[in-house]
């Protein structure tokens, strides 16, 4: 019972963060929101008794993929400053 309530709360948090990721004007905020979606999804996998998938999602989805996005956006922002 309590697990279902936790799952519903996590599901709502995932959807809220996804909407922020799609609609926020600032790219940095959108990228961090997408990382948070992955982090909540890994908790969801843990509730669905899939610890292997939860580990992978936490390490890859919210760690490495966020840092890759940041590298690219940082590069683009630097370029924009040079040419403006």
């Amino acid at each position: 019972m309590i697990i279902k309530i936790i799952a519903i709360i996590i599901g709502l948090a995932i959807l809220l963060m996804a909407l922020i990721a799609v609609y926020n004007k600032k790219l940095i905020v959108a990228i961090v929101a997408a990382g948070v979606v992955s982090l909540f999804a890994s908790v969801m996998y843990l509730l669905l008794s899939a610890p292997d998938v939860a580990m992978t999602e936490a390490a890859i989805g919210s760690g490495l993929s966020t840092i890759i996005f940041f590298y690219v956006v940082n590069k683009i922002r630097k370029n924009r400053k040079d040419h403006a």
Partner: peptide
């Protein structure tokens, strides 16, 4: 384009869930 890639990664996570 970056926003579209973010949308793709959300799509991906949804399929996994």
């Amino acid at each position: 384009i970056i926003k579209m890639i973010i949308g793709f990664s959300l799509f991906d996570t949804g399929i996994h869930i």
